[in-house]
């Protein structure tokens, strides 16, 4: 038992910061805010105002096609959402997809990252192969997988001798195909984040462990993974929030049928398809709050280093 976690390496500070006079500080401050302001306005303007409007709309029973019937209902829309079985069943579906895809991605992504980390030749080819799913349009990927499994156009049943199995006719199999498409598309992102984490594991520690006779598995669980903790947590946080918002794949593959509807899809259908802006806004606000809760869970509960996530270190 000699393998140990590396002491958290102090990040290198900004190179050569020099003392400045007071006048310069004020000018610098003004310049700083001037440079940052446009980006800040663009980010906040497009999110804060519509979000506030969503909160306001959520207090009404309001359908776009029946403007005369609009009336104030207070918080009752929230009561409807939170006591609705459909909401909770969609939450369950979404959480199931999130947990399964993120877990599989973590394992597969780590395997990919290890392969790339140890790669001597063919680096370029593997990197390209891995980046294609990352760059491809989600809708395109979803179509590719949908057509592969579909009863009429698909080759999967044919190749594996599954006869007329209707993949999109059952909840479990439909969710399986949806998850598979998601995993295919997003594992590359995960593996690249993990690759960066792998590169940070101090080589000396691994060598020392090997000299001390630690097995491959021991080195993985005692040295490599603990030293990658920060990278893994950040990758998990981003992928979890991303997976929780899943929409495109479900839209293309099943359009929410066979119990595959997710919370994002639910919000979309209320506001855009049904144009029930009141109830739909309540769903949107609840969805937003649930995302915030997940983020808080990661940051407070699992201790994700926010400074790291912010790219400060």
């Amino acid at each position: 038992m000699t393998a140990a976690t590396a002491p958290a390496a102090a990040p290198p500070g900004p190179v050569g910061r020099v003392q400045r006079s007071n006048g310069r500080t004020r000018a610098e401050r003004r310049l700083g805010w001037t440079l940052v302001a446009p980006a800040l306005v663009a980010m906040v303007g497009v999110t804060a105002y519509p979000l506030a409007r969503a909160v306001w709309l959520s207090l009404y029973s309001y359908r776009l096609t029946d403007p005369a019937g609009r009336h104030f209902v207070g918080l009752s829309n929230y009561g409807v959402v939170l006591t609705d079985r459909l909401w909770w069943s969609d939450v369950l579906t979404t959480v199931a997809i999130t947990v399964v895809t993120v877990a599989v991605e973590l394992v597969v992504g780590f395997a990919f990252a290890s392969v790339m980390h140890h790669l001597v030749f063919g680096r370029r080819l593997v990197r390209t192969a891995i980046l294609v799913p990352y760059g491809i349009i989600t809708v395109v990927a979803a179509f590719a997988w949908r057509y592969a499994f579909a009863l009429d156009t698909g080759f999967v049943n044919h190749v594996f001798g599954l006869g007329n199995f209707a993949w999109f006719g059952h909840r479990g199999s439909a969710l399986f195909v949806i998850s598979l498409a998601e995993i295919w598309k997003t594992t590359p992102f995960m593996s690249l984040l993990l690759l960066a984490g792998l590169a940070q594991v101090p080589r000396e520690l691994l060598e020392a462990a090997e000299v001390d006779g630690a097995t491959r598995t021991q080195r993985l669980f005692r040295v490599t993974l603990p030293n990658m903790r920060a990278a893994i947590m950040v990758a998990l946080l981003f992928r979890t929030l991303d997976a929780y918002r899943i929409f495109d794949t479900v839209f293309v593959m099943t359009n929410g049928a066979a119990g595959t509807e997710t919370v994002s899809f639910l919000a979309y259908r209320q506001t855009i398809t049904r144009t029930a802006l009141g109830l739909g806004s309540a769903v949107s606000v609840v969805l937003f709050v649930s995302v915030v809760l997940i983020a808080i869970l990661f940051i407070k509960g699992f201790g994700v280093d926010l400074a790291r996530a912010r790219g400060e270190r």
């Binding site: 700083g32 940052v36 969503a54 994002s264 919000a267 855009i272 949107s284 937003f288 996530a309 912010r310």
Partner: peptide
């Protein structure tokens, strides 16, 4: 060096996590 640097990065982080679908209706 200016105050509010952290704020910008936090806002950016928040926006990156934002469920875009919540904004679509409004």
């Amino acid at each position: 060096d200016f105050p509010g640097k952290k704020l910008i990065l936090s806002v950016a982080l928040g926006i990156a996590m934002f469920p875009t679908i919540s904004l679509v209706g409004p």
